[in-house]
Design a protein around this nucleic acid. Structure first.
Length: 457
RNA sequence: GUGGUUGUAGCUCAGUUGGUUAGAGCGCUAGAUUGUGGUUCUAGAGGUCGCCGGUUCGAGACCGGUCUUCCACCCCA
């Protein structure tokens, strides 16, 4: 045999059982998407490079899978650029297409391109794979699925509230209790940066702050210093590090910190509106928490920022994220369209449900009854019954070969098919069927109507 | 992209300081059982020790490279 075949790093095959479980998650999410009034779209798996490049920050560009041009692509590269051996310069010359990195940027492109056909506010959902040239880790793949719901063309904060409810509805349906929806607002972060005089360092500031629960207070301060944020500025942040208590306490001390920042005050106002109304409406399983250190937003977030973390005790990064972006479509030439959206990380949700054993046993659609094959005449007799069962929506199949019965029974056993029908010469003659329950071992001989009745509950 | 880690039968893994023909459990195939699966018993098949190169009389083991796995960083779902 030749080399053992394999799949590329960070990609996976899915068995029938795995597909069944993934479908269960996707159907659950889709159900809520529809219930909340979102409509599906799909976009190509690859886009023109300039649609994607530069939209996710420097780091993002590195993680985008580039597709090599067709034909003799190297011959078209100018000698000077070629001999320079600078990958960054050569890449755009030899690659003009790239694999989708997320669903939000292609969606923005879609909105701009089809703006005349879209009725705003436009609520769309999209469930497709995305690709990142990242190094794999636990819960981190190079090919994974995102399930996104976004609203564009409305800046009403009720959308944020609905998205919180949407998260709650989906995780409630999945039986995933104890999840936390963390919420923050980019305006609060901007306000803080403004107050401490580090406006020009907003990104570095937020990235460092985001690591608080991971590297601790000292670690954050150290990183901020390294990024060129002054000691006096960092001292002004002190209230943030001892930030605790109820949401009212948090909001009060934030207000004090941000009295001089109009932007900051607007952020507090927004986040208060969302939290208060979401709580008035009630949440089933999710805990909604204000987390001022939450910054993991991509560069384009301008208002609310969301992140969903798995229940405590499950070692997993965020299982969902999202936020508001006031001007995403601006990059593609359509100004003044505000959008807000959330994403569900299908692959990570799968790992969490698996770990907590929350998949219902019924997710695997399986054949309900296997007919033993006794020979040609009996097979025909069996096939007639099978047609009748299938007409009643009962999944049934005939063992294709006239193998030994032990082998056929073993097959049913392995496939976990709950019933077997034995219809040999005696049954054919009597126009009856022997139905065996594989779990209990009991068997009864019945006619076709009784058979349908017994299998069709 | 940086640092570390892993790879031996279909699966999970043993394999001593380098030494004859690389093992176990599970699974698989056949039989005990010609109309009955799971339990039991018996027999059997199955390996280029990830791949390429090097050191050595001799490499599964040591060295280099490469691919893969997992982990940390970066970043993220």
């Amino acid at each position: 045999m030749a080399k053992k075949p394999s799949v590329p790093k960070g990609t996976r095959d899915f068995s029938p059982q795995e597909v069944a479980k993934r479908n269960y998650i996707m159907e659950t999410i889709k159900k809520s998407f529809k219930l909340f009034g979102f409509q599906p779209i799909e976009t190509p798996s690859f886009e023109n490079s300039d649609t994607l490049m530069g939209k996710y920050g420097e780091e993002g560009d590195r993680l985008i899978f580039k597709i090599l041009n067709s034909g003799d692509y190297l011959s078209k590269v100018e000698e000077a650029i070629y001999s320079e051996k600078d990958s960054l310069k050569i890449t755009p010359k030899i690659s003009e297409k790239a694999l989708r990195y997320d669903l939000t940027v292609p969606f923005a492109r879609y909105v701009v391109q089809h703006q005349n056909d879209i009725t705003f506010p436009f609520k769309r959902y999209q469930m497709q794979p995305v690709w990142r040239a990242d190094r794999p880790q636990k819960g981190r793949f190079r090919e994974f699925w995102q399930c996104d719901a976004d609203v564009v063309g409305s800046d009403a904060l009720w959308q944020e509230i609905e998205l919180v409810q949407l998260y709650d509805a989906v995780f409630s349906d999945l039986g995933l209790k104890g999840i936390t929806i963390k919420i923050n607002n980019r305006k609060i972060l901007s306000g803080i940066a403004e107050v401490i005089g580090a406006e020009d360092k907003l990104i570095d500031f937020t990235v460092a702050l985001d690591k608080l629960d991971k590297i601790g207070e000292e670690g954050v301060k150290k990183e901020m210093l390294e990024k060129g944020i002054s000691q006096t500025a960092i001292e002004k942040l002190q209230p943030l590090f001892s930030f605790d208590g109820s949401k009212d306490d948090k909001l009060k001390s934030l207000s004090t910190l941000l009295t001089t920042s109009e932007t900051g005050k607007k952020g507090i106002e927004e986040v208060t509106f969302v939290i208060e109304n979401a709580q008035k409406l009630g949440l089933k399983v999710a805990q909604l928490n204000l987390d001022v250190t939450l910054a993991r937003g991509l560069d384009y977030y301008t208002g609310a920022i969301f992140e969903v973390s798995a229940p405590k005790g499950v070692q997993m990064g965020s299982i969902g994220g999202g936020g508001r972006y006031d001007d995403l479509t601006g990059i593609f030439g359509l100004k003044g369209v505000s959008g807000v959206g959330i994403s569900f990380g299908l692959d990570r949700i799968y790992l969490v449900l698996e770990e907590l054993q929350l998949f219902p046993e019924t997710v695997e659609a399986n054949t309900k009854v296997l007919f033993i094959n006794f020979g040609e005449a009996e097979a025909l007799y069996a096939m007639q019954a099978i047609s009748n069962l299938r007409a009643k929506n009962i999944p049934a199949e005939l063992y294709p070969d006239t193998a030994k019965m032990g082998k056929q029974m073993t097959y049913a056993d392995k496939r976990e098919i709950p019933f077997v029908v034995l219809a040999g010469g005696n049954e054919v003659k009597a126009n009856r069927y022997t139905l065996k329950n594989m779990k209990s071992g009991e068997q009864v001989t019945v006619d076709l109507n009784e058979l349908i009745e017994m299998l069709g509950f």
